[in-house]
Computed example of a mutant assay.
Amino acid sequence: MRLRAAHVRVRVPATSANLGPGFDALGMALALHDELEVRAVASPGARVEVEGEGAGEVPDDERHLVVRALRAALDHVGAPQTGLHLRCRNRIPHGRGLGSSAAAVVAGVLAARGLVDDPDVLGDDDALALATLLEGHPDNAAPALLGGLTLAWTADGGAGGEGVRAARLPVHPDVAPVAVVPAQHLSTHAARGVLPAQVPHGDAAWQAGRAALLVEALGRRPDLLLDATGDRLHQGYRRAVMPESLALVDALRTRGVAAVVSGAGPTVLALARRTDAPGGAGQDGLPTDADAAVADAFGGVMAGWRVLRLAVDPGGATVRTLLD
């Protein structure tokens, strides 16, 4: 396998995993993107420039997650390694449950796809398997790669990225995600560390019903979203490490909004619905049923929280060759 291109541009969306009951399985791509340019250069090693989220915090050399994923993808297809120059424009908040690490991994794999002379060797199935192996779970990697709403699973006997599969599911046009992002970070490791090894059978059965209902609610019946986003498997156990986030989830749900913890948190995601009511506006200029509830829950004092009204990203990650 040889390198075909020397300069590519990658664009990858933020994602929200779990969506309440779909723990480690459901995920949604959001219209908030990291963009990066990758150049293959003659000098050895890697040089990384970062603008936006993570600037001055993430590594600027071979340790950078995009570089590590890109090099793993080149090794995976038997392509030669090369010196690298990355320029990253990051908009996805880090450590907030919006899939920033999955976006970096998918970006690295897609950059390798753009550089090699046979992009088909890193088709979507192979790219998802490799991204899952590097990321650990497919729930963020699948929507980052494929876009839209995805259901990811691993075939029996699969290990690491082997046997991972994903299917795209329809999303009703009235669904309008609203991310409420706190100032503080929380690592996925810390959020997973408080989960029990076992849960009651009754809770597991209840959760399975809600996960099935969520697919119907997101695809055809947004009026069912509040019931469909109930959870007994992970959010309650995480209250100790993100009390403000769970308090906001409770406050919004009490006001009739289908609010959940986004991924491992601490961002809160409202699966809102577009409305015809006056006042407020989503990204596409239409108001949502969450606007007044969010404002009321905060009482006008945001205390470092940001509200991001986002669309569902339908296309997922892209890569294109640039001609110098």
Rank of each mutant, 00 (worst) to 15 (best):
V268F: 06
Q207G: 11
G282C: 06
D284E: 07
L271N: 04
G193T: 05
G265W: 05
L248Q: 09
R210V: 09
G285P: 11
L214Y: 11
A293I: 10
G279M: 09
L226G: 11
S262I: 09
Q235A: 03
S262Y: 00
L225R: 06
A208L: 15
A228V: 05
V194Y: 03
A264L: 01
V249L: 02
E244Q: 15
G265A: 08
T229V: 15
A293K: 11
T229M: 00
Q198R: 15
R192I: 05
D291M: 08
L246F: 10
D223A: 15
L225N: 02
L218T: 12
L218H: 10
G209Q: 09
R253Q: 13
R221N: 08
P278I: 00
A211G: 08
G263Q: 03
A179Q: 13
T267H: 13
A292H: 05
P243T: 11
W206Q: 08
D284P: 06
P177C: 05
D284F: 12
A183N: 14
A258P: 11
V180A: 00
L269N: 12
A197L: 13
V249Y: 04
V249A: 02
L195Y: 04
A217P: 06
D284Y: 07
A281V: 13
V181K: 12
V261Y: 10
V181M: 09
D284H: 11
L224P: 12
L252Q: 10
A176D: 11
G256P: 05
G279Q: 07
R238K: 08
A251K: 03
T288P: 10
L213F: 08
G256I: 02
H185L: 05
A258H: 07
D291N: 05
A259V: 07
D289C: 11
G230S: 14
H201R: 15
L186G: 12
A191H: 00
A247Q: 13
P196I: 01
R210N: 03
A281F: 07
W206L: 05
A204R: 00
L233W: 02
R192L: 06
L286T: 15
P278V: 11
A205E: 13
V180K: 02
Y237W: 15
A258C: 04
V215P: 12
R220F: 14
Y237P: 01
L252A: 02
T229F: 04
A259D: 10
R239N: 02
A197F: 00
G280L: 13
R273P: 02
G279S: 09
